[in-house]
Design a binder for these strands. Sequence first.
DNA 1: ACAACAAATAATGTCAGGTTATTCGATATG
DNA 2: CATATCGAATAACCTGACATTATTTGTTGT
Lengths: 308, 308
Amino acid sequence: MIRLRQLEVLCAVIDLGTTSGAAEALSVSQPAVSNMIRHIEDLVGFPLFKREKGRLTPTPEALHIAQEAQHLFSQQKRVDRIINQLRGGTVGQLNVIATPSIGYVLLPRLITEFTRTRPRVKLSIELGSVDDIIQQLISGRADLGFSITLPRHTALSVRPMASGNMVCAMPEDHELALSRRINVLDLNHVRHISYGFGTPLGQMIDEVYRKNGIERRYFCEVRHTSTALEMVSAGAGVALVDNFALLGVARRSIAVREIEPAMPVALHGVTSNLFPTSHVAMQFQEFVRDALNDPAALAEWGITADYS
Amino acid sequence: MIRLRQLEVLCAVIDLGTTSGAAEALSVSQPAVSNMIRHIEDLVGFPLFKREKGRLTPTPEALHIAQEAQHLFSQQKRVDRIINQLRGGTVGQLNVIATPSIGYVLLPRLITEFTRTRPRVKLSIELGSVDDIIQQLISGRADLGFSITLPRHTALSVRPMASGNMVCAMPEDHELALSRRINVLDLNHVRHISYGFGTPLGQMIDEVYRKNGIERRYFCEVRHTSTALEMVSAGAGVALVDNFALLGVARRSIAVREIEPAMPVALHGVTSNLFPTSHVAMQFQEFVRDALNDPAALAEWGITADYS
DNA sequence: ACAACAAATAATGTCAGGTTATTCGATATG
DNA sequence: CATATCGAATAACCTGACATTATTTGTTGT
């Protein structure tokens, strides 16, 4: 089977007309080319050049071969280009599934930033609960997940991305806005939005109430913090939300206050162990982590993490 | 620039699933493969396999590269084939693949005529279904295809060569021979040979039956019109065939009648866009078109298109 | 006759890609 | 549970394709 390199040399000699010319073009020595040509002729079994008066003129056979070889070269370049693109992460596909609190506003912006330098990446963003995230990842439909609640599943790898807190969001003119810091238990005294007992967030808050022997009471139950935040923004009431949900939202007359006891939360990046994680997916995960830990960068993209 | 061999090894490992398997397939040692994979990973700068539990699973990137590399391999094989043919002392080559109806009788005669003035052209004729034709063309093994069914494939160029009709062929002494023109639906009443539902021809005929709310019934199912014609000629029964299949066959006591509804068919010349079409191939294509549209020329070579 | 150029030859170096022998980790099995 | 099995990796070494430099040979224009 003829080698790629051999065809390369053959074509160079045909194109340039002389071995020395070809040698220069390929940046090798003239004898290297000369030997190679002879070697190929031995290999194929018929002359590729007519040698007369110290010159080489290609035979029709050689021309024919060279013609066909061009496609081989272009194919090789194509493969090489693809490898380069893969290296730079500018090609591939990236299916992300995330909890709405980050996926609703922040993630779309980050992805936009990320793909600004990677125009050929195919994307999809999906929102879902922890269970959805687990499902999509272990089934291979999603490459990367982001979750507040940390999914317990042996087939998943979880990496911490950023740490945050639950905070209290309310309409600007709300009575609670007068306090600098709000006790979680006090929410029982106002119309507020909270999370079902079945949700991880609901259980986390219930834990505090239970310790104090009080029953949690709220007028509206939602599943995701982003939904709660939307309602707060519409003036429906007060809600506890994670600070990630606040990143990037237009501050439409919402006031935000710290709570006590502090309820730390963390954002996790999740990948499946069942399938190899793609290069772009890893890159994007790092991109998100870096972005979340660099308020300056976020600010540059019109996302402020400041809610004092 | 990635080497051909490296891609070869990469693909082998992906296909076979293990380094040892790949090593065996390539007839080299297992460490050779192992080292090569590592070397490629260094070269491209990102992992191609996930190593866990002592096994290798390819990353999406590796799969992507392997996919692209396939074209390269087929190109290489093509060049190699061309060299082999040149070694055999031919200046040109012409590999034709055609549907049997034209390829069985007519094409051999046309090729004979064509090469009368071109002694150093190396030839091959192959018969096959539309799918075979598509496969051979896009893989570069055939230079030119002729098909009744027109192949839908983006990498193929199709040119109409001649138009024709389905006609009804039967033994001379058959009762139907008394009619001047035969209704397709009437075939249900006689022992006749037809085409499977999966074939384009079968679907085309079924369409007529379906419109009339009748189920097509036949005693023998074949794939190609030339086969059907052969059976008719042997006295097995009646069959619908395209008129191209009739061109050039010795009229061994076969009667031919027009049918209603008329079922027009066309013969197409097909070439691949993936490779440059050789000069001979284009010439031959034109030769065939001209011949088919010039009954005088055909008659001169002992081929008659007249079946009145 | 001789400079100028193109190709071929000779002697030698180097590295991609191969070898065998062996180890390591994971899994299957009596 | 000890052990056999299988796949991957590592180490040390070998080989040939393809490169090098130095030199010779043949052709051509002045």
